[in-house]
Simulated assay, not measured.
Amino acid sequence: MNDHATPVLLLNPPRTTTAELLAQAAAWRGHDVVAHARQAEGRETYWYGGPLAADALSGRLGLGLLEPADDWLTTVPQDLLRRSVRLTTLAGARSLGRPAFVKPPSEKIDLLPAAVYEDASALPAALDDGTPVLVSEVVEFAAEYRLFVRDGEVAAGSRYAVHGRPDPAPLDPRAEAFAREVLKATADGLPSAVCVDIGRLGDGGWAIVEANMAWFAHCYAAEPDRVLDVVLRAAGPLPRVSDRDRPFVRAPRTRPNERAAR
């Protein structure tokens, strides 16, 4: 029988490689690692998994899931962004007459992969016009890095791609230096536990890529135990969320409507 005083890390199946690494780190700390919500009910519960399942379970389990605001990327200093970005709707993206990088603001939508769309005809017709999207000027990142951030500091990090292809490796000093610059300028607008991606451009300059929820981010080559520190802060019991983080607590989402034609 499980001890109800023991904290729980709930990992919704199927498990990813990152989930397995976090499970090992959590078990080493003495957490019970479980796969079903019924095993977590009435207990101090933490979450790692997708947003759809999180929306279904967060109220039932009393979770406070932290995430950046949908429009955060549009608010950062231009010298750290190095491109134009705006939050609009799929209808707005369809009105563009030029190639653009289009993505959902804070989570994946199967029918709308984050990608460069050459024109409006390439955007999925099966999604409702009101679906929120971020539309960005097209830039090429030579290398991309993931930062797991806690209290405005990089707790763990990793390179994850080179020229758009997966290539995990430890953070290098240049990435760490730019990360410090980014967090000094932007941490006040982010939850205390979050995932921030940065990248080196083809011209050698650096830019912010995006920010996402830490509780649904791959760790790549980052140290799993340090990643777990961020995940536990970002996806734990709602009563433990600080006043500062309350504005960043995720409200369960209404899923974008898919049109009848499939």
Rank of each mutant, 00 (worst) to 15 (best):
R174P: 03
G42T: 08
A179P: 05
R38W: 13
T74H: 00
L201N: 09
S121G: 13
E118S: 12
R159H: 02
E118T: 07
R43N: 06
P252H: 01
V154S: 07
W47R: 05
L61R: 05
N2Y: 12
A93N: 04
R86T: 05
A40K: 02
L111N: 13
C195A: 15
A179E: 03
V138D: 07
A115M: 11
R98E: 15
D71Q: 07
L134N: 08
A235Y: 05
L111C: 12
P124I: 02
L147D: 06
A260I: 01
E20Y: 05
R146I: 06
H163V: 10
R165E: 11
L9F: 14
L183W: 09
L127K: 05
D3Y: 07
L201V: 06
K103A: 13
H163C: 14
P132T: 01
A142Q: 10
P124L: 03
G189P: 15
C195R: 00
G64F: 07
E258Q: 13
R15D: 04
G49D: 06
G64P: 01
P170N: 03
E20C: 07
R150V: 02
A235I: 03
A161W: 06
V227D: 08
R255Q: 15
A53R: 11
N212E: 09
W47A: 09
P237Q: 08
P166V: 06
L57H: 11
H31G: 05
P105K: 00
E20M: 12
L183C: 10
E41L: 15
R174H: 12
L111P: 00
R246P: 04
W215C: 07
D151K: 06
V33E: 14
G59Y: 00
G42R: 05
A207E: 11
D129M: 01
D55P: 03
S242C: 10
E144G: 06
R240Q: 15
A155S: 15
N212C: 11
L183G: 10
C219M: 12
L127Y: 01
V149G: 03
A143M: 01
R226V: 02
P99R: 11
A19P: 04
L57G: 08
L80G: 03
E210I: 07
T75E: 15
A115N: 14
E223C: 10
Q24H: 11
P224T: 04
A221E: 12
R262E: 03
R15W: 13
S121W: 05
V116C: 10
A222K: 09
T6S: 13
S136R: 11
E181Q: 15
H4N: 14
V135I: 03
T88Y: 06
V149L: 07
I208S: 01
S95N: 12
P247D: 04
A93E: 02
E67A: 15
A125V: 01
E210Y: 09
R246D: 08
I208P: 03
M1W: 07
A193E: 05
G204R: 09
D129Y: 02
R253K: 08
A261W: 09
A177L: 14
A5M: 09
E140F: 09
D79W: 02
F101V: 09
G205M: 07
A122Q: 14
Y220N: 02
D79E: 14
E44I: 13
D70K: 00
D172I: 08
V116W: 00
F101C: 13
R43D: 02
P191T: 03
A161F: 08
G205D: 15
E258G: 04
L123S: 06
V182Q: 08
G202Q: 10
A142K: 01
V241D: 13
V34Q: 10
P166E: 09
D151A: 15
